[in-house]
């Protein structure tokens, strides 16, 4: 009797959760809460600093290429959609579709990062470096931090892809994909905010 209870409890410990959400998923939500403040701080810094440049200094309107950034933003936005497809695929047990959508998402993300690299290079050649002025420092810091987040997301997506290829990502682990998806959607939403505030507002 006692032994049964003990055994029961040992199993319970692994699956029981007071909120009904798994530890991992809850941790991601909590972590994203913290990330909000990180980007909040960076965006505030950018807003605070963007106009603190000299009259003839290189500023937002001198470098921004709205059509280009709009396209890359759209690409990133689409990656959220493909992420949803990836989660839905693994939930219904379609591992192959899951892999396809994971790879697509990563590819779209990589396209976005490539666009950002191109954009940075173009800005730099136009005379806007990290040390040029306050606008430059704040712009690169903000978008750079976001780019780093996207890059980490891509690495995680690729890891999932490889795990799936090796057979380590069965349908029972759909939640792992969902959690990475949460992160990915968050990074996308942050970009929408950044795109609006940084690129669209000054126009």
């Amino acid at each position: 009797m006692a032994a049964e209870a003990i055994n029961h409890s040992a199993q319970e410990q692994d699956h029981h959760s007071s909120t009904g959400i798994s530890n991992e998923k809850l941790a991601m939500w909590v972590f994203l809460g913290s990330e909000c403040l990180l980007f909040g701080g960076l965006i505030s810094t950018y807003m605070f600093n963007k106009d603190r440049i000299g009259l003839n200094d290189i500023g937002p309107s001198d470098v921004f290429d709205i059509p280009f950034t709009s396209v890359s933003s759209f690409v990133l936005l689409m990656s959220s959609l493909t992420m949803v497809f990836a989660v839905s695929a693994i939930t219904r047990g379609d591992l192959r579709a899951n892999r396809i959508w994971l790879a697509t998402t990563a590819a779209l993300g990589a396209t976005f990062v490539a666009g950002q690299v191109y954009e940075f290079t173009a800005f730099y050649s136009e005379g806007l470096g990290f040390t040029t002025n306050l606008f430059g420092s704040s712009f690169y810091a903000l978008t750079g931090f976001h780019g780093a987040h996207v890059t980490i997301g891509i690495i995680m997506l690729m890891s999932l892809y490889i795990m799936s290829l090796r057979g380590n990502l069965p349908a029972e682990r759909a939640e792992t994909v969902e959690i990475i998806g949460l992160y990915w959607h968050f990074v996308d939403i942050v970009w929408i905010v950044i795109f609006t505030i940084v690129y669209l507002f000054p126009q």
Partner: peptide
């Protein structure tokens, strides 16, 4: 609270190590 000081410390570090202008 920590992400806010994280931002501040990053800005400070960028200023000190890589000559940004914050």
């Amino acid at each position: 609270a920590l992400p806010v000081i994280t931002v501040a410390l990053f800005l400070l570090m960028f200023d000190r190590l890589w000559e940004s202008n914050f």
